[in-house]
């Protein structure tokens, strides 16, 4: 074990390097995605995309745009690898994101290419932490093929509204039914638990609803366990867009404002449950 002087630590042939003054921005986004240990990371000139999948039926994507960083350089068009998201978060949080008023830790990330670890260098008040997060071959991720042309129904609302609905879902219910319709009841979330059925409706006239665009009445059931992880990004979000395509696939898109007032998006896809008797 030895200490490297500052100059030696500079890696010049990095394929990817990014720097930010405030690690909290990224940490805030990644923390909402941590419902699985493993994540696929895609580095590209536009930013960093992090993908986490749940049982091949649900998928969360976070986009951290390059302008969130003060410095952002990448040589290649696209680099993909897999890493342990939990460890990544623990490393970014090593100084606790700075207490209120105090200086926030700064972050430098370097990735030299296939087979190399993702190197993080965090600094706060002269205390430096070096992390090497091992990278693995990326896993194939699902393509939900969710083009906006196929989207039948779309509602954009303030997140508080949906947050309350989602956090109060009856945990004894295996399924959650979501109905979106151009006519009343417009938007309805139902559960079928041991103690009864519960329904929550949000009208298109609600003050919480900012945009309402439904072409067709669609009713689909989703596994509660698959939908549950979306509560975390929902809690952090300002607004949420709920979209459903003709196949019944659900896409929740969360708009999150970071500490330094950048806007980031997280998408959450969820497959519908196939049912024998369709009505």
């Amino acid at each position: 074990m030895s200490i490297h002087p500052e100059e030696e630590r500079e890696i010049n042939d990095g394929h990817f390097r990014a720097k930010t003054d405030n690690v909290k921005n990224i940490l805030q986004i990644l923390k909402t995605m941590n419902f699985r240990d493993q994540a696929n990371v895609v580095l590209s000139p536009s930013g960093i995309k992090v993908t986490v999948e749940n049982a091949k039926c649900a998928q969360a994507n976070a986009f951290i745009e390059s302008d969130l960083f003060q410095e952002y350089e990448i040589e290649e068009e696209m680099v993909i690898f897999k890493l342990n998201l939990t460890s990544w978060i623990e490393c970014l949080n090593i100084f606790g994101g700075g207490t209120a008023g105090a200086a926030t830790p700064s972050l430098k990330m370097v990735y030299r290419g296939h087979g190399y670890p993702l190197v993080l260098e965090l600094e706060e008040d002269g205390v430096v932490t070096d992390c090497e997060i091992k990278t693995e071959e990326p896993e194939d991720t699902l393509d939900f093929d969710f083009f906006s042309t196929e989207v039948m129904n779309k509602i954009i609302m303030r997140s508080e509204c949906l947050k309350e609905v989602f956090t109060d879902l009856d945990v004894t219910s295996e399924m959650v039914e979501i109905l979106m319709s151009p006519d009343a009841p417009y938007f309805r979330v139902s559960t079928f638990g041991n103690y009864g059925t519960s329904q929550t409706e949000i009208s298109m006239e609600s003050e919480m609803v900012e945009h309402f665009e439904c072409k067709q009445t669609l009713k689909q059931r989703y596994r509660l366990s698959l939908l549950k992880p979306s509560i975390k990004p929902l809690t952090a979000a300002l607004k949420v867009s709920v979209r459903m395509d003709a196949r019944g696939f659900l896409c929740l898109q969360f708009m999150i404002r970071t500490e330094s007032h950048h806007i980031c998006f997280i998408e959450y896809f969820c497959c519908p449950e196939e049912e024998d008797s369709d009505d």
């Binding site: 200490i3 890493l83 342990n84 460890s87 205390v127 070096d130």
Partner: peptide, 11 residues
């Protein structure tokens, strides 16, 4: 650990 190596330096 299997996933990461982390060192914090206080100078």
């Amino acid at each position: 650990s299997d996933a990461a190596n982390v060192s914090t330096y206080f100078r």
